[in-house]
Each structure stands twice: as structure tokens, then as C-alpha cells.
Design a protein around this nucleic acid. Structure first.
Lengths: 352, 352
DNA sequence: CTGAAAGCGCTTACAG
DNA sequence: CTGAAAGCGCTTACAG
């Protein structure tokens, strides 16, 4: 199992009858004003004939800046991430970076492994949508990167102590707004489906919900919070969640678990003869493409995923350039997209 | 803009009071049976204290096999690709490979750029879902990789001359089966929406369609083929495509452009008062997640995307290991998933 | 049991 | 205008 042999500078030099230094110079266009046209031509021709491609590993070893960016996300097959990823890779391509993709499956062990690999690769930086569980290990990991001088930014999921710059939406305000919309539509018994609490952004959303509830005089709201007990949606959890919604006699549901879970719940309700939005209204989070095509079309909190990806890459470049340090955040604009899954009840408030 | 300094073997050696060779050996566990436990302990401790991480670039330069795989696809935000990608990255993680992602946006220039970068990176191999347009440039690109001894396999989209091993479904049979289903459901005027013909797999599908039509005595089928003129679906193309479907007085549509385009057509029809499947039946291709959630739920040709990804990585490993050479193909099983978007007409044939 | 030395493929001062 | 040499961070025979 020998290493495949590739054409080296030396071979090009021999073929062109010059030194490797000369070849290197003409290929990099350095000092090329001081090199004969004839030599240049010879070198270029030899390189082309031999199919020469420079070895990036060697170049980086010599001190060339790495163009590799590590992207660490939970799961590319979850519809929330491809758009973010496209934003990142598009901007990366524009700027001359390449991105290496790691899925953690929300598993800290895989996240640690990804970071170790990225560190060994000497990536220029990493964009992280972390696992955050257990949170002490997540922080250890961030320290691990810091110890190794690896620039990192977070996207979507960030930490409360903000030791890393991040781009995200204002989760507090987004949840507040969606919940207020439900309340003003006349709903009073609104179930909130939420993943476990290890994510700070979920805390933020819950905080927004409590705040708006207090504002509208809806006390004792805890009982309407349904913990699904998972970080990502599991289809198997849907029936028991719907059981609870029914038991709680809710007229509306707000899914902090994202649109897919919301839509699965709608489907489960429909099979039970519960109509959406006539019997129960539903609001999702993230506004993935599916929300547009579901039936009824889903009202959801839009996150500008593609733009968040672009912004994350730009932010990473800034921290790589040393222009920015934590704490630093970029808050993107969310939007409540009203579609067809919420019904106006009798108690609806006018205006807004 | 100096290179960030990372801890090197030399520093660890100094700190531990031994030579770099010794450090290298204990860290790699080589000849460690011949090294004192005390030395090992010293080295390990020094490495940990200094946050040492080996430099993969240097290791690869020294002949270590690269663990990087290049994945080149049209667009990660197209729902067809994330699942493929997950299959690839999952299997890659199992086997100790990492994957670097490139989107071509179906643009040969970007594909060329991706290949050049991958070549410079000295990747272990590449998995390609190519642009194929213009096809001479695509072949040139394949030769480019061959010249540089870079193992490559194709996924989903492959070439007619099979100079590269690939994994795909039997596109001929899949289209044949879907079309036959439509015919046996009683449809005779079936519009086929197809992208431009630069893709061999589309040729295959069309061939399947012609064959089954001939078999059932449906001659002169060309007039029902609607060329959308694009490789990927453009929402803007939908209205004119629906115009043609109506003009052709079709009772069914088969979208070779994929499910998303099919669903967009359904939506456009519904806004025109054409009901699916009552007035017009629709069959999609690929069976993306959306097909399950659309209204009506879409009958579609299922491609085992995740498994295709896994298979592609395994295949790549085989060609990297020299065990396999082109021509070689892995044909995955497709399946026609019957849901709600096709109506049984009066002329339906029994059986099957 | 451990170290000195060569070399992987490059680039970059420094000579000439 | 071009080349010889050092060195990036490693690993691997080869000494001792």
C-alpha cells in the first residue's frame, strides 16, 4: 500500500532543465519579472506535460495559510442544515476556502472526534453548531480549540457565557412574537413542545414564552410545557406528545422542536380526527421548505438559514483575521410567517 | 499574517527531555514495547500539558495515507443530496475518512475548480455527481483525475462509456415501471417532463418510457415529451410547463425532474382549478421527504439515497484499494411508491 | 532502549 | 537572471 506517486517540483525542474526554486517561482508568479520568458515557457510546458499539481500539504507545512474550514453540525439530512451549509460553502467558495463536513448526530463523542481531526488538519477555522450536552464537555471542547489557537464561531446554537462569537436569531424575541400571535388570535391554552433544556437557545425561547404569558395575564404556564425529552424530533415521540396536547385540552400548539415535528403532530392529529387549524392551531419553528408544502401550510418562525451561513463564514474570517473577539454576536432577523395552520378564535384581540 | 504557531514534536521532546524520534514512536505506539514505561509516561505527560496535536499535513507529506475524501455534488440545498451526503459521511466516519464538500451548481467551471483543489489537497479519492455539460469537458475532467492517479466514483449521474465506476439505480427500469403503472391505471396521454438531454441517466429514463409505450401500442410518443430546458427545477418554469400539459390534453404527468418540480406543478394546477389526481395524475422521481407530506401525497420512484451514499463510499474504498476498476457499477434497487397522486381511470387494466 | 540523520514536497532568503 | 541550501513537522530506517 505505497503512497500514490504524484509529480513533484523536482521532476518538473529536471524536465525543464532548471532548478526547483525557479520552477516554484514561476508557478507562483513570484519574482517572475526577473525570469526570462524562455525559462517561464519551458517550465510551464514541462508542468503541463507532466500534469503537475502542487502539493497543498507541503505548501501549508511551509507556512501557507490553510484554506480548509471545518463545519460541524448535528445532521446534514435534517432539513434545517443544508441551507445553512449552502450559505457557508457558497461564501467559502467566493473567498477561496473549502469546507469539510462533520455530523455529530448530537453526540458529544462524535463532536470531540471531529474537533480532534480538524485540529490535526490545521484548519483555518471552524463553524460549530454544537451538541451542548453534557455542557461541561462542550465547554471543555471550546477550550480545547482555544488552547490550539483554532478560531471558531457558533451558528444557531450558542452558549450563555458567549466565549465564542456566534450568529443566530433573537430566540427570545422570536418565541415571544409567535406566542403573542397565538394569544392575540384568541388562544389561551397553548401547548409548547420543547426538547430537553440543555440548549441555551431553548431557554431563551421559553423565557420569551413566559414573558409574553405573564404580560397577557396567563399565569401558571408551566403545565403547558411539554418536554419531548429529545433534542431532535423522533417520529416515535409524536403520539405521546399528541396525547398530552389533547389531555391538556389545548387549542393551540407551538413546536420549539421545529417544523418537521409540528407537521408530524398535525398528521397524527388528523388521523385522530382532530382538524388543524379548526380544532387545534399549530405554529412551527425554523420555516423549512416543507412548511410551504404541508397541509395546511404551516405558520412558522422563519430563520434566514442561508444568510446565517454566509454571515457565519464572514464572521469566522473576521476572527481569523484577529479583527473580532468574543463576546461578539450577529443577530439575524427572524420573521413570523403566517400561513394556514392557525385559527382566529372568538376571543381574538383586534389590531396587530 | 504569520502562521499560527502550534506545538510541535520538537517542543514536546524538549519538554520531556528526549528526542523527537522517541516522542514520535510513543505517540504512534510503534516499538512502544521497546521503550521504558517511564519514558512513555514522561512523553505522554509533556504532550498533554502542551496540548500537542500532530500535524496531519506533515504526516501526509511523510507518506501517511490521506483520509480526506472529496464530495462533489450540484447543490446540497437540493433535498436529493443531503441524504446521499449523510450516507457518505456516516460510512466515512466509520472508516476513518473525512469528507470535503463542493457544490458545483451544475456549473462545469466550478466543478473544474473543485477537482483542481481536491487534487492539490491530495485527497484519497473523490465521489462525484457531475455536471455533464458540456460533456466533453466532463470527460476531460475525468481524464484530469486519471492523469493524477486520483480514484473517483460517480453517484446517481454516470456516463454512458463507463470509464468510472458508479452507483446508481436502473434508470431505464425505474422509468419503465412508473410509466407502465400510469398506463395500466388507464392513462393514455401522459406528459413527461424532462430536463435537457445532457444527462445519460435521463436518456435511460426516456428510453424506458419509449419502450413501455411501444409495448402498449402507444406510438408517436415524442409529442408528449416536455423539455423544461433546465437541469434542475426552476420554479419560474412551472407555469409554461403546466400550459403545455393542458394544451396536450394529458390526464397524467411524469416528472423526470424530480419530486419538487412535480409538487410545484400540482400546486400550479390546483390554483388553476385542476384537481390532482381527479383531473390530472402526477408521478414524481426520487421520492424526497416532501413527497410524503405534499397534498395529495406524491406517488414517486424511490431512490435509496442514504444507501447509495454508503455504497458509493465503499465502492470508492475498493477502487482506492485497487480491487476494482472501471467498468464497474453497483445498481441499487429502486421502488415505485404508490401514494395518492394517481387516479385509476376507466380504461385501467386489471392485475399488476 | 534511545538518538542522529535523511527525506517527504515545498518556499524563501541568500548567493552569485 | 538562476541555483544551492535551509527548514516547515513529521517518520523511519539505521546506529549505538
Amino acid at each position: 500500500m505505497k503512497k500514490r506517486c504524484r509529480v513533484t517540483l523536482k521532476e518538473v525542474a529536471q524536465s525543464a532543465g532548471v532548478s526547483v526554486a525557479t520552477v516554484s517561482m514561476v508557478l507562483n508568479g513570484k519574482n517572475s519579472d526577473r525570469i526570462t520568458d524562455k525559462t517561464i515557457k519551458k517550465v510551464l510546458q514541462a508542468a503541463a506535460e507532466l500534469n503537475y499539481t502542487p502539493d497543498l500539504n507541503a505548501q501549508i507545512l511551509k507556512g501557507k495559510a490553510s484554506t480548509l474550514i471545518g463545519l460541524v453540525i448535528p445532521d446534514i439530512s435534517n432539513p434545517f442544515y443544508p441551507e445553512i451549509t449552502k450559505g457557508i460553502t457558497d461564501r467559502a467558495a467566493e473567498l477561496g476556502y473549502n469546507v469539510t463536513l462533520f455530523n455529530t448526530d448530537n453526540n458529544i463523542t462524535q463532536e470531540i472526534f471531529a474537533m480532534e481531526t480538524l485540529s490535526a488538519m490545521r484548519v483555518a477555522g471552524v463553524i460549530l453548531c454544537g451538541v451542548f450536552e453534557p455542557s461541561n464537555q462542550e465547554r471543555e471542547l471550546l477550550r480545547y480549540l482555544e488552547d490550539r489557537d483554532i478560531p471558531v464561531v457558533q451558528i444557531d446554537r450558542y452558549d450563555s457565557d458567549e466565549i465564542v462569537p456566534y450568529v443566530a436569531i433573537d430566540n427570545y424575541a422570536a418565541a415571544y412574537q409567535a406566542m403573542e400571535y397565538l394569544i392575540r388570535s384568541g388562544h389561551r391554552r397553548i401547548a409548547v413542545i420543547t426538547p430537553d433544556m440543555s440548549l441555551h437557545i431553548i431557554h431563551e425561547r421559553i423565557r420569551g414564552i413566559y414573558t409574553v404569558c405573564a404580560q397577557y395575564g396567563l399565569g401558571g404556564y408551566e403545565k403547558f410545557i411539554i418536554y419531548s425529552g429529545v433534542k431532535e424530533m423522533q417520529k416515535a415521540d409524536v403520539p405521546s406528545v399528541v396525547d398530552q396536547i389533547v389531555q391538556l385540552e389545548c387549542t393551540a400548539v407551538f413546536s420549539l422542536l421545529g417544523d418537521l415535528f409540528a407537521i408530524e403532530c398535525i398528521r397524527e392529529m388528523e388521523t385522530r380526527g382532530i382538524s388543524v387549524p379548526d380544532d387545534i392551531s399549530v405554529v412551527g419553528f425554523d420555516d423549512i421548505q416543507l412548511a410551504t408544502f404541508s397541509h395546511p401550510r404551516l405558520t412558522s418562525v422563519h430563520q434566514p438559514k442561508y444568510d446565517m451561513g454566509k454571515a457565519a463564514l464572514d464572521l469566522l474570517c473576521s476572527v481569523m483575521g484577529g479583527e473580532i473577539q468574543a463576546p461578539y454576536r450577529i443577530i439575524m432577523e427572524h420573521r413570523l410567517i403566517v400561513r394556514e395552520s392557525v385559527r382566529l378564535c372568538s376571543g381574538a384581540l383586534d389590531g396587530s
